[in-house]
Amino acid sequence: MKNFLIILVIATIAYAVNQQKSSSSKPSSNTQLNTSSIEDQRIQKAFRNQQSDIQVKGSGSVIKVLPDDTKGSKHQKFILKLASGQTVLIAHNIDLAPRINSLRKGDIVSFNGEYEWNSQGGVIHWTHHDPQRRHEDGWLKHKDKIYK
């Protein structure tokens, strides 16, 4: 009986040590949230300070799909709500990049583009490649497909 208790104690300690090691070696589920939070904070700061021309990345949920803007360069337009609660208008140039045809309210879209301040939360544009290579290429990601 004494040997059984010793084995049980050793097994319990070994299990606890193993659990602690495996949980500390796994990336935290908050890692992506922390990255998104940092980017959201950059966008919120730019909005508060009325700054523009800032390259940003992030993601949000589509809350409204707007009609395409067909005056001048054609743009697909929709509004994203970020995790912070801030909304931004995405103006995606569909003369230079493919249109997201399957976009629906509630979809998650990730982006890399340039933030421009406006009183309603801001606009993200340059979500496409720059054919003249003078600007950082941007993109949109929807359902694991990248549009640039």
Rank of each mutant, 00 (worst) to 15 (best):
H135N: 09
S59K: 15
N49H: 11
S36V: 14
E114K: 06
Y115A: 05
W139R: 09
H142W: 12
L5I: 12
T127F: 04
G138F: 07
T35V: 13
V109M: 03
R99M: 11
V65D: 08
L82S: 02
A97D: 15
Q41F: 08
G113L: 04
K81N: 09
I10G: 07
E114N: 00
G72N: 09
I63W: 06
G85W: 03
S102T: 12
G85L: 09
S22I: 12
S61K: 12
R99Q: 13
K74G: 01
S119K: 15
W117V: 07
G113V: 02
Q132H: 12
T12F: 14
F47G: 02
V109I: 12
G122P: 06
R42N: 12
T127Y: 00
T12I: 13
K145A: 14
N101M: 08
S23T: 13
L82G: 00
R99D: 13
S84W: 01
K145M: 14
S29R: 06
P131D: 05
Q76N: 03
I94Q: 02
V65M: 03
H92A: 00
H125R: 09
K141S: 12
L5W: 14
R48A: 15
Q41W: 08
G106I: 04
L96R: 14
I38W: 11
F4I: 11
D130Y: 03
Q120T: 10
K74L: 11
S119A: 10
I100E: 00
Q44T: 09
G85P: 03
N112W: 04
S28L: 08
G113F: 00
I54L: 12
K64L: 01
L8Q: 08
K77I: 04
P27S: 09
I63F: 05
D69L: 11
D53P: 03
I124P: 03
K81E: 07
N112D: 09
A11E: 13
S37W: 04
E39I: 00
K57A: 14
Q86D: 05
I90F: 06
P98C: 05
S110E: 15
G58S: 03
R42L: 12
Q50E: 11
S22H: 11
V56S: 03
S28Y: 05
T35M: 13
H129A: 10
D107G: 00
S52P: 06
V56T: 05
V56G: 01
S28W: 00
E136W: 02
I54S: 03
Q51A: 07
K57T: 14
P27W: 02
S119D: 14
S36E: 15
T70K: 04
P98I: 05
M1T: 10
Q120V: 09
F111G: 01
F111A: 05
D107W: 03
K45A: 09
E136S: 06
D130K: 02
L96V: 13
K57W: 08
N118S: 08
I54K: 07
L66E: 13
Q20H: 07
T87G: 03
E136L: 06
A14W: 07
